[in-house]
Amino acid sequence: MSNQFHIQNWVKIKNGKIFNSEKLIFDSSEKELNFFLKACYDFLDLKYPKFHKMDGLSKMGILASEIIFRKNKPTEDTALVISNNASSLEIDRQFQESTETFASPSLFVYTLPNIVLGEISIKYKLQSENAFFVSEDFNAKLLKDYTESLLISGKSHQVLSGWIDLQNGEYDVFLCLVSKERNIPFSEENLRKLYCAENDKPTH
């Protein structure tokens, strides 16, 4: 079967570990989400103070895309196609709690899942196509079909595609960079394989 598009680079963040194209690059024993995210920030020597104001989803999006974009510089039209299971429910709950005393505008801004796309766009100056999908499980078919549709139609020449989920402090991130350049064939099977490879258990 011929594959027109290819995965240039991928990153996986789960259970304290960061894998970058099959290499374990970071392993932390921090159990608590915010400590882990801070440890990743220090490991990458990110120097991006805005990071500390973000919610968990956005922080994970920035960390994962930084790892990819350090190796493969994004272009102006690098599109973002991200999905997850829990939408922004983690921060939704925090905002809901805040309404019992004083509704927090700084929490409310993060109560949409696509805010992570905005944060990635700001950091890497991407004025490109955005789409956020919600699905029960990692939906390789949807990610492949939609990512391909952007590449086929020429709306984008490169797509950062994947999954950034956060619920009850548990995180699960998989992002890959897809373009025409030859590498790992961009197929549903390969997406599933890469996403599942480092997962101890199937998602949820």
Binding site: A131, V134, S149, L150, K155
Partner: peptide, 26 residues
């Protein structure tokens, strides 16, 4: 088919049409 759920702030409804066209095109 598993429903496709688009959640992209206040452009979601219009983006749903664009998603349909793009998936239709391919």
């Amino acid at each position: 088919q598993t429903p496709i759920i688009v959640s992209n702030a206040c452009i979601s409804g219009g983006l749903g049409l664009a998603v349909a066209r793009r998936l239709g095109n391919s």
